[in-house]
Simulated scan of single mutants.
Amino acid sequence: MSVRLLHPSIQNGRHRGDTDHAGGILTCKCANRPVKVRVSAGIAHNHACGCTKCWKPEGSAFSVVAVAPSENVSVIDNADKLAIVDPTALIQRHACKHCGTHMYGPVERDHPFKSLSFIHPELFENGNWPEPGFAAFVSSVIEGGVDPSEMDGIRAKLREVGLEPYDCLSPALMDYIATWTAKKSGVLR
C-alpha cells in the first residue's frame, strides 16, 4: 500500500536544520508582491499537524507548523494582501488573499498559547529551520479526506521518518495546557 504525501519536508525523512535557528523572513507563494513576515526569534514545538485548519502544500496530508512569540512576528511587506481566515478561531490565521498561504496565526484570547503565533517554517527564505519533532492531530487527516484505511500506513510512515504520531499534541504540550488550566482554576498554585 502506498502512503499519500505526508508533507514535502518530511516525506523521505525529516528536514534537518539548525536547532539554534534565530528566525528569519517568511515569504508567501506569490510571484508578484509576495507577503513577507519577519520572525525575529527562534521557533519552538515544530511539528507535523493533521488538523483541517492549518495550511498545507498542495497534495499534502499534513502541515508543518511551529510557534514563535507574537511580539517577535511582524509583517514587513504587502500587509494589504493579508486577511484572517476565520475570525472566530482561536488561532487568528493571517493568509495571503492571492495565493492562500497562511503566514502567521497569533493566539490573542485567554489560552495557554496566548502571545504565541503559529507559523509554517518551510516558508523561511533560509531553509535552515529546526526539524519537526512529532506529529499532532494525526486522526484529523480523515476529516480532511484521507481514507481511514490509510491510517496504519500513515502512522508507520511518520514513525519511519522519526515523528511520533499523536491524536492531540505532544505529551509535554498537553501537560503544559493541563497545568495552565489547573492553575487558572485554582487546583494548582
Results as ranks from 00 to 15, higher is better:
139 S>L: 08
57 P>L: 13
73 V>N: 04
55 W>Q: 10
108 E>W: 00
82 L>F: 06
76 I>H: 09
108 E>G: 01
128 N>C: 07
65 V>H: 05
122 E>Y: 15
89 A>R: 10
64 V>A: 09
84 I>L: 05
96 C>A: 08
88 T>D: 11
118 F>T: 03
95 A>F: 07
102 H>V: 03
64 V>E: 15
46 N>A: 15
60 S>C: 13
56 K>E: 12
46 N>S: 15
127 G>F: 09
39 V>T: 01
38 R>F: 02
130 P>C: 11
92 Q>P: 03
79 A>Y: 00
81 K>E: 08
48 A>P: 05
99 C>A: 08
38 R>G: 00
134 F>C: 13
118 F>G: 02
53 K>A: 12
71 E>K: 09
118 F>S: 08
140 S>N: 14
57 P>A: 09
67 V>T: 13
133 G>V: 03
49 C>A: 07
66 A>H: 04
67 V>S: 05
55 W>R: 07
89 A>Y: 07
60 S>H: 07
83 A>P: 00
110 D>K: 08
66 A>F: 04
136 A>K: 02
72 N>E: 09
92 Q>A: 08
57 P>E: 13
120 H>F: 14
77 D>M: 04
49 C>K: 00
68 A>D: 05
52 T>Y: 02
131 E>F: 03
98 H>P: 01
143 E>N: 15
